[in-house]
C-alpha cells in the first residue's frame, strides 16, 4: 500500500527516475563478478530513492536537464547505498529490507570493498560536473556524515544524553544528505542563492522529520514490515527519540542495561516494545516530527510559484506519515 502511494507520488517523474535506475545499474557494473553480484543484491533490495527524487524536484525549479541532473542524483544515491553497506558491518546487521546484507551474504571484507567501490563510482560519476561548488558541498557532507556516525558510536548506551545530542546526531546521520540532495539539485539547476537556501533548509527539515519517523517505526512497525526485528536500534545501543522521552521508565532503564551487556531475551524485547508502543513517547515524537514538517512546508511556501511546489509538499507529507 505504502509502496503504491510512493509510486503514485513519483508518477510524473517516472521517466526520469527510470533513467536514474538505469544509470545506477550502469554505475554499479564491474569487471568483478563478486562486486556485480553484491551490487545487484543491493539494487534488487530497492529503496525509496528519496535522495535522487529530491534532486530532480529541486532542479525542476531551475533549468532542468536530466542529462546534467542525473550526474548528481546518481552519486547521491550511490553514496547512500555505500554507507548502508558499511553501516551493516558496523551494526553487525544480517538483514536489511528483509534481505540478507552484503556482509551476511558474503563477509565483512567483501562489504568493505563493495562499499569502497560504490563510493569511488559515485565520485567518478560526479566528476562529470565541473562546478567546484558542487564538489565542495558533497565532500563536506560526506565528512560530516562520517562525523555523525562516529558520534553515534560514542553515544551508544550512553545514559546521560539529551534531546540536543539526539538532534545533533540525526542531523548528520540523515538530514545532511537530504539537505544536500535538495541543495545540489538546486545548484545544478542554476537557481539563485535565495532559492537554493530555501530548498536546502527544506531538505534539512524534511530529513530531520524522516529520521524521527524512522526511529518511531523501529518500535511501532512489525518485524515483517521492517525486514528486521523491531527495536533493533535500542538493541544496538542507539538511544533514539522515543527512548529519550521514556528514559526514566524503570523497565526501559533495565532493558538498556541488559542490552549493553548483550543479555536481552526475546521476552525482554517484546516487553520493551509493548511499553514504548503504549506510551506517550510515540505521540510526542510524532509531534516533534510534525514540527519539522511544518518548518519544511514554510520553506516551500517561500519558493516562487511552480507546479513542483505541490510535489515537494506531497513528498514531505508522505515522508512524515509513512508506515514503512
Amino acid at each position: 500500500m505504502e509502496k503504491m502511494k510512493l509510486k503514485l507520488l513519483y508518477s510524473d517523474l517516472k521517466s526520469d527516475i527510470d533513467i536514474i535506475e538505469k544509470e545506477l545499474e550502469t554505475a554499479l557494473n564491474s569487471s568483478s563478478h563478486l562486486i556485480n553480484d553484491a551490487s545487484l543484491h543491493l539494487l534488487q533490495a530497492g529503496g525509496k530513492r528519496i535522495r535522487p527524487v529530491f534532486v530532480l524536484i529541486s532542479a525542476k525549479f531551475g533549468q532542468y536537464n536530466i542529462d546534467q541532473i542525473k550526474n548528481i542524483a546518481v552519486p547521491l544515491e550511490l553514496i547512500h547505498m555505500a554507507s548502508l553497506v558499511h553501516d551493516d558491518v558496523i551494526d553487525d546487521s544480517d538483514l536489511r529490507r528483509g534481505r540478507h546484507t552484503v556482509k551476511a551474504q558474503w563477509n565483512n571484507r567483501v562489504a568493505m570493498y563493495t562499499g569502497d567501490f560504490i563510493f569511488a563510482r559515485a565520485l567518478e560519476y560526479v566528476t562529470s560536473i565541473e562546478n567546484v561548488k558542487v564538489h565542495q558541498i558533497l565532500a563536506k557532507t560526506m565528512v560530516e556524515i562520517c562525523n555523525g556516525e562516529v558520534i553515534q558510536i560514542e553515544d551508544k548506551f550512553r545514559d546521560n544524553q539529551n534531546l540536543k545530542d539526539y538532534f545533533r546526531r540525526i542531523k548528520r546521520k540523515t538530514a545532511l544528505l537530504i539537505e544536500s540532495s535538495c541543495e545540489l539539485g538546486a545548484v545544478v539547476g542554476g537557481l539563485d542563492d535565495k532559492n537554493i537556501r530555501h530548498l536546502k533548509r527544506f531538505g534539512y527539515f524534511v530529513g530531520m522529520s524522516y529520521q524521527i519517523v524512522d526511529d518511531i517505526l523501529d518500535f511501532t512497525a512489525t518485524d515483517k514490515e521492517l525486514g528486521k526485528p523491531a527495536g533493533s536500534d535500542l538493541l544496538q545501543g542507539n538511544i533514539t527519540l522515543p527512548i529519550l522521552l521514556l528514559k526514566d521508565h524503570p523497565v526501559i532503564q533495565r532493558f538498556i542495561e541488559k542490552a549493553s551487556s548483550g543479555v536481552v531475551s526475546e521476552e525482554d524485547r517484546l516487553e520493551m516494545l509493548k511499553i514504548v508502543r503504549n506510551s506517550d513517547a510515540i505521540k510526542q515524537a510524532i509531534t516533534l516530527s510534525n514540527q519539522y514538517l511544518r518548518k519544511a512546508l514554510k520553506e516551500v511556501d517561500a519558493l516562487p510559484n511552480h507546479q513542483m511546489k505541490r510535489k515537494l509538499r506531497d513528498v514531505a507529507l508522505f515522508i512524515g506519515k509513512r508506515k514503512f
Binding site: S31, S32, L34, W106, N107, Y113, F117, A120
Partner: peptide
C-alpha cells in the same frame, strides 16, 4: 577494489 575482492 576489483582486484582486492578477487581474494573472495
Amino acid at each position: 577494489c576489483e582486484h582486492q575482492i578477487k581474494l573472495y
